[in-house]
Design a protein around this nucleic acid. Structure first.
Lengths: 122, 122
DNA sequence: CGGTATCCGCATGGATACTG
DNA sequence: CAGTATCCATGCGGATACCG
């Protein structure tokens, strides 16, 4: 329905899909934290992801869980304990992220060298 | 300054940096269009990127140009002609994007299979 | 401990009209 | 043709308070 033969199929694009999953402001830092520490509890993540609020953390965790990137295990104890970790799908994201990181690092460098008289965009 | 030894260095992370560049709603579709047609004029891009407005297009193009991903060539003629194309840096992004696309495609499939009774997140 | 609920400011992004 | 200017709606994301 959106496929005028000459326009990009924005909805179906897997990159856009991927970006919707990891593009949230806090998603990447959370994934990063979990990639370094196999298992983390709620407050551990909160401490590692500097500046995140409860709302953003719990919301991001839910989104990541719904998208199958992380798994949430709740232990029925007092005091409550909930542990988060990456799923296989989440782990399989890491190589792509590494690629992106390599590119990003290169860009950061050359952005400094060709020292832009440019204003920070936006 | 933001580097408490235990928190993620959000500012310096190259992935976050990369995402800031390509994360905009329209950046990826534009890059995609330019990766398929070496050179495109303003209105050609607008036609290819379905649904984009003048404001978003010109703004996105400016951002991408400032970040060194695309190059803008303006011909001093009447009627005006402006051509956009990817820079080397922009081209070097494509492999990373391909990785991400591979991952995204896999996720889209398994998201259908394990047919989520999940609400669409957010 | 591990979250929700509510309120709210501000930026993102859309529509429309206008310009060199 | 290739944009800018203006106005405005939506919603992301932060702060704070509260709950099981």
């Amino acid at each position: 329905m959106n496929s005028n033969k000459d326009s990009q199929d924005i909805n179906g694009c897997p990159v856009v899909y991927a970006l919707n999953i990891i593009g949230g402001k806090w998603h990447l830092p959370i994934i990063w934290a979990l990639s370094q520490n196999k298992v983390l509890r709620y407050n551990e993540i909160k401490r590692k992801v500097c500046g995140i609020t409860n709302m953003m953390l719990s919301q991001s965790l839910k989104e990541l869980e719904n998208n199958g990137l992380i798994i949430r295990i709740q232990y029925m104890e007092i005091p409550p304990r909930v542990e988060y970790s990456l799923t296989e799908a989440g782990i399989s994201l890491l190589p792509a992220l590494a690629e992106l990181a390599k590119w990003g690092a290169k860009q950061m460098k050359s952005a400094q060298e060709t020292n832009s008289c440019l204003k920070p965009d936006r």
